[in-house]
Amino acid sequence: MSWFVRPAREDDLDALLDLAKMTGGGFTNLPPNRDALAKRLAWSSDSYAKAVETPDNELYMLFLEEAETGRIGGTACLFSRVGVEWPFYSYKLGMVTQSSRELKRTFAMQTLYLVNDYDGASEVGGLFLHPELRVAGLGRLLARSRYLFMAQHRERFGERVLAELRGFITAEGGSPFWDGLGAKFFGMPFQEADHFNSLHGNQFIADLMPKHPIYVSMLPDSAREVIGHPHPSGIPAKKLLEAEGFAFDGYVDIFDGGPTMCSRVENVRTVRDSRSAAVGELTESAGGLLPALLATGRLGDFRAWMGHSDWCADGLVLPADDARLHGLQIGDLVRHAPA
């Protein structure tokens, strides 16, 4: 079976809704709401068609598709610039140290500050793979295709790129972090707050959340224990991000306390190591060629896949079957990144 990644279309709504219903909650970028998903697909279509010189609140949704059947196996997205329509809020973990000469004691206390430090950065998110397909590197293909898209359209993204990992969610769909902090100020359960955020943005956080630092020691143990830790199902995604050069720098999600990973775009491994070249030669088999991540096309014609290739004097060597599958001929440009 051959899988490839391509831009989402507005007629993908039913498939996208099916995926959203499998997430189990906590995926702000993939709400299981038909109207909300239809708006996101329309936003994405407009972004692909838009002439852009600098990033300005565009959304690019990608789908994983099986070439032989048209089956949709997963989705992921890129936001060109966060903090445009409403501020992008995070909690920043800090430290306050206080001393008493009389008691001869010093206390170091961890704090949470409400900040907008990532305003203007790009974001990769909304990565979800059908549970039956979490094998054979399809998640890696879907995740890394976003970075090839960024490399292919560098002018459409900022200098930094972040990824928010889902924090710990209970089997019942609750969040210990939200229960220990946010719920005290908003009077609503996590699922309701998360759903409201996915539909309307998080400006209500700025309206109601106190602006002074929150002392972590005052939170219940259940909340403190999950700060900065991804949900167990998100650990593979965290490892993929770390392999690309993303790092956790003390910023966590305001709803579930999950970690925010960040990198400068030019330091993302797939962006840094990718190279665009013409197809210089076609071979009858992949024998002797090296595994590679490949992409071709721009904007709505973009597609990425895991294949095989090598270099020759005229550019890239590709298997003829792959070239036919992806509509390539000698001389066409392909972006290559090591597998």
Rank of each mutant, 00 (worst) to 15 (best):
K239W: 09
T283Y: 02
P131T: 10
H308M: 05
M95T: 14
D301E: 15
A121P: 00
A8Y: 07
L142T: 09
E65A: 11
R160I: 00
L142H: 08
A36P: 02
T69P: 05
V334C: 09
R144N: 14
S276W: 01
P291W: 08
A67Q: 13
L289V: 11
T270Q: 04
A49S: 13
H336V: 11
S285V: 11
R154Y: 06
T296V: 09
G297L: 08
P131K: 10
F196K: 15
W305Q: 09
D18G: 13
L240M: 15
L129W: 04
L219A: 03
G234P: 00
P31Y: 09
A206H: 10
Y91M: 11
A20I: 03
E164R: 10
P189E: 08
S122K: 11
G120R: 08
R40E: 12
K39V: 01
R34D: 10
T75I: 13
P87R: 03
N267H: 14
P189R: 01
F255R: 06
G250L: 02
M209H: 15
E159F: 05
G73Q: 11
F248D: 04
V84Q: 07
D35C: 04
D14Q: 14
D56C: 13
G174V: 01
F107P: 00
Y91G: 00
L93T: 12
D249L: 12
F27V: 04
G258C: 08
R140K: 14
S45F: 01
P319G: 07
S44H: 05
R9G: 11
G250I: 08
G257K: 03
K21I: 00
G228R: 07
F190L: 01
D256R: 01
L299N: 14
R9W: 11
G315A: 04
I205E: 02
F128H: 10
L148Y: 05
G300Y: 04
G307T: 02
C312W: 00
L294K: 10
E58K: 09
G74N: 10
A171R: 14
D310T: 10
Q98E: 15
P176Y: 02
R34H: 10
L181G: 08
E172S: 14
K238N: 02
A313T: 13
G74K: 09
N29D: 15
A339D: 11
L127H: 03
G245H: 06
G125E: 07
E242A: 14
L138Q: 12
G126L: 06
T97S: 14
R269Y: 06
V124N: 12
E192G: 00
F149Y: 14
W305L: 03
A286L: 10
G182I: 10
R160C: 02
L16V: 15
Y118C: 08
K184D: 07
Y48N: 08
L59K: 13
L64D: 08
M1T: 12
L318V: 03
P131Q: 03
G94V: 05
F79I: 13
L30P: 01
V279C: 07
L289Y: 09
L114E: 01
V226M: 09
F302Y: 12
D221C: 03
I254V: 15
A163K: 00
P291Q: 08
A292T: 06
L112K: 01
D179M: 07
E58P: 07
K238A: 15
L162R: 09
F88A: 12
E102Q: 12
L162C: 05
E132I: 01
G70V: 06
L114A: 05
R166C: 11
G70F: 06
